[in-house]
């Protein structure tokens, strides 16, 4: 190995190292503001419950689920969905419609493309890229929206094993369906 190739290697290495290390020398930022993923979870859960409702509806139409079972499961799932909608509203009013807003915002962004934007919708779009509305970015935004209403949240990562509704620490019965909760 010649000195020349070593020198060339060094010349290649330096910009690479500079490129990789550069972000470390910019002002320190946090990846995401709060560590609360509760709203994101709720939105994802709502999405799943909605899909499930659609799915059993389809199963019923294609003759896999009889009418009684369908009615029962449908009622149960709708109960879950409603309680989720309410929880979402409690945490962040307006966030329940976030899907709609996001879509509008994204549509707005598509229209303006790269042009500078000033209205609120575009501002939202600039920081939100997920459409499903289950993303960290969404969470962050919705959390901020909720935070503005001074809703104090406690972190709860647990959910009712029966209906899937969120459960506060200390609850012994599920608020949505009344099932006795398992000891955690």
């Amino acid at each position: 190995m010649t000195w020349l190739s070593l020198a060339i290697g060094l010349i290649i290495a330096l910009p690479v190292i500079a490129y990789v290390a550069r972000p470390l020398f910019t002002p320190a930022r946090l990846l995401y503001a709060t560590d609360d993923s509760r709203l994101g979870d709720l939105l994802a859960r709502k999405d799943t419950v909605l899909s499930n409702i659609k799915e059993i509806e389809f199963d019923h139409q294609t003759g896999k689920l009889n009418t009684e079972d369908y009615a029962q499961y449908n009622q149960r799932l709708r109960g879950q969905a409603l309680s989720l909608l309410k929880r979402i509203d409690q945490i962040a009013p307006g966030a329940g419609d976030l899907d709609t807003q996001l879509e509008a915002a994204i549509a707005a962004r598509r229209k303006v493309a790269a042009a500078p934007v000033s209205d609120a919708a575009a501002a939202t779009a600039a920081s939100v890229t997920e459409i499903a509305g289950t993303d960290d970015a969404t969470t962050k935004q919705a959390t901020e929206a909720g935070g503005a209403k001074e809703v104090v949240m406690q972190r709860s990562a647990s959910f009712c094993h029966h209906c899937g509704a969120p459960v506060e620490p200390g609850d012994r019965f599920c608020r949505a369906c009344g099932t006795r909760l398992r000891e955690e």
């Binding site: 709708r78 909608l85 329940g96 899907d99 369906c177």
Partner: peptide, 20 residues
């Protein structure tokens, strides 16, 4: 025993389902 779902929420659910 179940709390009667408010019509408002039920309507919203139907809307969301229609979109979903």
């Amino acid at each position: 025993e179940r709390p009667v779902p408010d019509d408002d929420y039920a309507r919203r659910l139907d809307e969301e389902l229609a979109r979903h």
